[in-house]
């Protein structure tokens, strides 16, 4: 069944990777995000910015169905991936997550060797090759994450032996090792020093050639440096006393920062709140 879906999506590969249609997202009865519609283009970097708690991570996690792990989560509306609704009942979330990889806020390598951190994903996805082919895959993934030169002599050491920035690049290498089409990144640099941050940003620019990248960031300079398109999310109070996030503005990054249409966007990007 999954293969069928795969075949279909390959045929219908569109110029939009994700099309989010009228999404409301709930945690239990609490509506965290309302009425989001947007289109994410392929081989570009799309950034999500906005104040804390406006639902950026929530939306990002919907794109690879990671929110399924949160029991009280549910969603109305559609998230189309090359035209296929990811939340259709016959979609296998495990396969979705292989195609749409994720890098988290805090570097979270597995408690395994550097080599096994990379090899784990391909292995559980039924990698058929022999040891040499796996070695090559590990090397290729680490090179793609520009980490190879730093770790090639200590592949059998624990992933924890690396610095924070290196760990995060290891996580990126781990994500690309299963050959995804999209890489989602949730504030990947917020736990890193400025130099590691720059390295990761350079890396993102390179990865853009091959992958579609969606990144949540708190750092507006980062958004201007790397993102082709930027979505500004905002949160407004509701009558019931809570607050709900919504997509305030989505446009080319230059427009969002240079010529925002909404006052809220302008206030946010000029640092007046957030």
């Amino acid at each position: 069944m999954v293969e069928q879906v795969a075949a279909q999506t390959n045929q219908t590969k569109t110029s939009t990777v994700f099309k989010i249609e009228d999404c409301d997202i709930y945690y239990g009865s609490y509506k965290a995000v309302r009425d989001v519609s947007m289109e994410i283009p392929p081989n570009q970097i799309t950034s999500f910015i906005g104040p804390s708690g406006c639902g950026k991570s929530t939306i990002l996690r919907c794109l690879n169905r990671l929110n399924d792990l949160i029991e009280i989560f549910h969603l109305t509306g559609k998230i189309l991936y090359h035209g296929q609704n990811l939340y259709d009942s016959d979609i296998d979330p495990v396969e979705v997550r292989r195609r749409i990889g994720m890098v988290f806020q805090r570097p979270n390598p597995f408690p395994k060797t550097i080599y096994d951190n990379i090899a784990y994903g391909p292995r559980i996805n039924g990698f058929k090759g022999d040891t040499d082919e796996m070695d090559a895959l590990v090397e290729r993934s680490l090179k793609r994450a520009v980490l190879w030169d730093e770790v090639k002599d200590k592949l059998q050491e624990s992933g924890f032996s690396l610095s924070g920035g290196q760990q995060q690049r290891l996580c990126i290498a781990r994500a690309v090792a299963v050959d995804p089409e999209v890489v989602l990144m949730d504030e990947p640099c917020s736990a890193l020093d400025p130099i590691s941050t720059l390295k990761i940003e350079e890396l993102m620019m390179e990865l853009r050639e091959k992958y579609t990248i969606v990144i949540v960031t708190h750092n507006m300079q980062q958004a201007t440096r790397v993102a082709d398109k930027t979505a500004f999310f905002n949160a407004v109070p509701t009558e019931s006393g809570g607050k709900v996030g919504y997509l305030a503005e989505f446009n080319d990054t230059q427009e969002i920062f240079g010529n925002p249409k909404e006052t809220a966007t302008r206030d946010y990007v000029t640092g007046r709140f957030g």
């Binding site: 988290f104 994903g121 996805n125 996580c171």
Partner: peptide, 25 residues
């Protein structure tokens, strides 16, 4: 929890995650 999410995130199933990541750790 993040380790489980990471494993699920590269396309592992629940039981693969438990057997190969969580239990060994």
């Amino acid at each position: 929890q993040e380790i489980r999410w990471a494993s699920i995130g590269v396309g592992a199933s629940r039981y693969q995650t438990v057997l190969q990541i969580v239990l060994p750790a």
